[in-house]
Design a binder for these strands. Structure first.
Lengths: 200, 200, 200, 200
DNA sequence: GATTAAACGAGACGGTACGTCGGGTCTTGAA
DNA sequence: TTCAAGACCCGACGTACCGTCTCGTTTAATC
């Protein structure tokens, strides 16, 4: 299954890192979030548990990194020439990813440890938050191209629109456990596009 | 099935039940999700830990029930006479609830145990899923009144619209850790209302 | 198996008592000591758990009474006309009983609750102790008949001899888990009889 | 399999092991069997409860090992030059040990878990059984020396005699809760010695 | 034959201990 | 320096079973 993973007893740096990340994603996919234990990851990666802790510090960090890297790979930003098509493709990929055990894990990781951000302001590094912001910013080009193309009015807020669409999928798939098929995505894109064109 | 007359045990049971649920909500609010331990809940409720396990079986069940009952109480369905206003009020309340530690807990509870729904179909009872469905159905009257009033075209799908709006808040608040102020809610309502009026 | 046990919903006194005792012995035989739970006994006896506690107070009391009554029934005092034969029969029956799960339970019940008799003197009722004393006294007639018959010198201590023989079986069967066959019993009787005849 | 050199983990392990065993014996002596809780043992040994479970698996295993090691230390095999004296010393020590809370615990530990040995044959490791066998074998030299010395006929069975004497003490002290003073031990030795010399 | 007290059914609860799980740390030896 | 190895710490979860409590209900003896 996994390509011959060299285990020369003492591998170094990047090799260990990648092996662990791969093992994490695999376990996430087969065992789910709570079934993904650091010890198991270590065994599967052919690495000692201590090494994992040395590098990532906590289980949450490890999983977060694994999941986010996976999402980056699985949900690319398309460029088909059509705003509508771009969004459909993007959201379909997102829906597919979220339906995955790996994707499901994302929603359960909490901002940093638990809900540390109890006080109004975000005081520390919040990897997940930053990730979403980065992700939305990346995807914003799809909207931007629509504006440039004249498909959309120039005053729309790209991130806002994407947040609305992504959020719908998030809620439907992750919270409600319902599927988001092509038709659903289509209606969603239509709704938001129509709203964006006529609002204000 | 409902006992014709509430036996004394039932009466005592109900008292215990409520005390535990209240204690859970309180701890959720002050200690956060991971800080809410069954033992502490029991102490605070003046009840023995075993009684909690007898009734709810697992920590997750307990917290789920507590959170959901709380949300029902904190996010009522308004009826102001204006569709726009109804939605604004509803979503503002939802946003406020989600920003709460109690609300935050909701997104981290997973469908039933972990991600048990690995196999395509939902095979068991999934309290959270059912809850959202019920919640959206309840709130659908707001949209329906808009249709009756002529505010919205008759062919819109109430749950779909609510899912889109609720999802946006969900993603923004719970995943991104950003606030959703009144203005944000406003724009969201505008977007979806405009989309609903002109799409298709 | 059990003869039609009348279960007219609310049985009284002696009937309940006997049903519970029977159920206890049965469970002891099939499930062993630690597998004999009060709740199970109650179910099997067709009686409510509370009734068991009302009557016997503690699990230990219940089991003790059940075991002792059983031993009285299973290990009768014989009278064959021969001292040697009497002892052989008696000890063989005892060995058989001790090899039983029910018999095995006896050695694990402790004097009263735990080891309450830490202080030198026995301060309370110790049913098991009394039971053994009574049992040895009963069986002493076998020795006494031997004395009367001239088989044994008049100054031997009946209880002492029985204690030695019973103890050997006890240790061998209950502690060592070894069988005590007819030959073993025979040698034991020979040893003690020979000792009693020639000592002092 | 035995590690050629004790690794540091082993060294630390041994320290923990001894501390736990000591703590167990102490608690056994002061609190009795049922008062000896794993948690308390751990605290007293300055070790975490989990470490105890890691090593011994169950409370029973722990206590068994503690008790048996203690008995080995408290009941040495004497060599006074006189068979009668050897036996008296040996049995007196045994009686003293059995009268101890620690000794008392021995009789209540069951063969392995409960009465698992329900089926005729001993299918697994039964530490207590093996212990007694080893103990009797050790003590057999006392009898053997008696034979060599001409005190006893050459065809007597050493273990058999010891079992008889040990069993008497066992029954008297552990089951009947009665004391076994020096005179009692004396009579017991006399009885068995006389029997052994003249029987058959 | 109605009344009443003792015994029983029923079900939840209190309480204590056992054992499990998994995240995370520490020490030492070796590559 | 990094990693392997293995025991440990720590804290929470969940389970098992004993025994108690309250109250409704039945039964048997009494008036």
């Amino acid at each position: 299954m996994t390509p011959s993973r060299p285990t020369p007893s003492h591998r170094r740096g990047a090799a260990v890192r990648q092996a662990v990340l791969d093992a994490t994603v695999e376990l996430l996919a087969t065992e789910g979030l709570s079934g993904t234990r650091v010890a198991d990851v270590a065994v599967r990666a052919g690495v000692h548990e201590t090494s994992v802790y040395r590098r990532w510090g906590t289980r949450t960090n490890l999983i977060l990194e694994a999941v986010l890297s996976r999402m980056d790979a699985d949900v690319p930003v398309p460029d088909t020439g059509s705003t509508r098509e771009d969004l459909t493709v993007l959201l379909t990929a997102l829906a597919a990813f979220l339906a995955t055990p790996t994707g499901r894990a994302l929603s359960r990781l909490g901002l940093t440890p638990d809900d540390a951000a109890q006080n109004g302001a975000a005081q520390g590094a919040q990897p997940r938050s930053e990730f979403w912001t980065a992700r939305l910013t990346q995807a914003a080009v799809v909207i931007q191209r629509g504006i440039d193309r004249g498909d959309l009015p120039p005053d729309v807020d790209p991130e806002f629109l994407l947040e609305a669409m992504g959020g719908a999928l998030h809620l439907r798939i992750l919270q409600r456990g319902l599927p988001a098929d092509r038709d659903y995505v289509s209606r969603l894109v239509d709704l938001v596009l129509a709203g964006a064109r006529s609002s204000r």
